[in-house]
Amino acid sequence: MSANGTIAVERPPEVKQGWTRARIIGVVLLTIWAALGLGVLIFMVNAWDPDIFARYAPRYLSGLWVTIQLVAVSVICGALLSVPIALGRMSRNKLIAGLAYAYVYFFRGTPLLAQTFLIYYGLGSFRPELQAIGLWGFFREAWYCAAFAFTLNTSAYQAEILRGAVESVGRGQWEAASALGLSKLQTLRKIIIPQALIVALRPYGNEIILMIKGSAIVAIITVYDLMGETRRAYARTFDFQTYIWAAIIYLGIVEVLRNAIDWIELRITKHLKR
């Protein structure tokens, strides 16, 4: 190309330097976030009342404990219950597979709140029958009903996680194991499960986080979990900082869990990194 030759060339748009539009928007938005954060902080400092704190801090802690218990019980019971359901989903028997599918579809297709109402208020319609078989004591308590509903709900989700994880392990692994003379159970325990766990870790972690967030709805059926204590405190004080405290606690738990899952995943996939 000669020095004075001016050939019109279509060039890609130049990469802009300095104060681009993205940068300006970014700084404006960050300023808004900072202002909001500062506003909340100032509000919290202004609204700070040692009396309220002394009265409600222990209640928040006990609420937090109820939330943790509820989630732990339902996730663990749900995990146990999810095994037969996942096996049913993978079964070659059409009837069993269909029943398991219907179970999973029902609990994943309806709101957790509606399921909880169905069990807590709905089973009250069968009070005489439940009393006759001695289960009324269980279904009378809101806490047990919530734990029961959450267990059924999470078991449907966990069954799908389990099924997906087991099916993600290639058929060749089964065939190789049987060629080595391992029994089905041995194959499952020593070859399939360790590989499936890596796939399942993240969905399991997400499910626990979803349960923690979802458990807030028990406040509506008069269980005093973290959300329930928050609503009670707000109803008595009309102080909006009660909700902000709850938000900070929930955000803290979820963030800690999320980072823990990232850390575990990093550790158990070390051998896969190149």
């Binding site: 970014g26 967030k213 406040a219 928050t230």
Partner: peptide
């Protein structure tokens, strides 16, 4: 841009981390 990425990530962190019910109350009463 770093600032824009951070602003966007704060948004997701907050609204994915809060229980939906609490978000609803925060919006409604707040």
């Amino acid at each position: 841009d770093k600032a824009l990425r951070l602003a966007a990530n704060i948004y997701t962190t907050i609204f994915r981390g809060l229980p939906e019910l609490l978000t609803l109350f925060l919006v409604f009463y707040g």
